[in-house]
């Protein structure tokens, strides 16, 4: 009981400090440095997992913070963490990069990351070829579904977190993740039948 109360207290404290931070940054753009300091490293890792190139990641992260600074005046604190809002901007920047560039961007995945996803697909025998089929399936999957799979299985995000980033409810995020996973599974099983 005490743990629950203290967790709630921590959440409330975090919410209040974040609200103050946003208000201060809205009044004075110099205060944005604190937001930058707070979220830079996490955001860098988040973007790097998608583009697997440090220089490109640095550019996209800078662009994300510039957009956040420009749009901060119109940001309304609804209770969802500011981090989710910044991540949403980052996702848009990354997607814009994927669409605009003619060069193929390679996203590198480790076997560890893929293991979380492969455990969910019991129909396939667990061996080296399963990993290859998973990667092949991901390459054929649409952009929106890929993003959901990445957030849920590769970054181990909770449905609530995914919902906050996408600006939807927790239940809606859960449904979207399930649908994306089903889509991926059907692609993999279809290619497995062909083989």
């Amino acid at each position: 009981m005490r743990t629950f109360t203290s967790h709630k207290h921590n959440q409330r404290f975090k919410y209040l400090t974040e609200k103050k931070l946003i208000q201060a940054a809205k009044r004075n753009s110099k205060e944005f440095a604190r937001i930058y300091e707070l979220y830079h490293n996490d955001l860098f890792r988040f973007v790097h997992k998608r583009v697997s190139d440090v220089d490109l990641t640095a550019d996209l992260v800078s662009q994300t913070f510039i957009k956040a600074m420009i749009n901060l005046s119109s940001y309304k604190h609804t209770g969802a963490p500011l981090k989710s809002w910044i991540y949403r901007i980052a996702i848009n920047e990354v997607n814009m990069h994927f669409r605009s560039t003619k060069k193929m961007t390679v996203t590198k995945l480790s076997s560890e990351m893929l293991a979380c996803l492969s455990d969910e697909i019991e129909e396939l025998p667990s061996n080296e070829s399963k990993m290859r089929q998973l990667v092949e399936g991901l390459n054929q999957l649409d952009e929106a579904s890929t993003l959901l799979i990445e957030m849920r299985y590769f970054e181990q995000m909770r449905h609530r977190q995914i919902g906050e980033i996408l600006g939807i409810s927790e239940d809606a995020a859960k449904m979207k993740v399930i649908r994306a996973f089903k889509r991926l599974k059907s692609i993999i099983l279809r290619t497995d039948e062909k083989i």
Binding site: R45, T101, M104, V106, T107, K108, L109, S110, M131, V135
Partner: peptide, 17 residues
């Protein structure tokens, strides 16, 4: 345009990097 690849040699980024 992007493509996924398996790469087990990639080290996670450190705070210093």
């Amino acid at each position: 345009m992007r493509r996924f690849e398996v790469d087990n040699e990639q080290e996670p980024l450190t705070d210093e990097q």
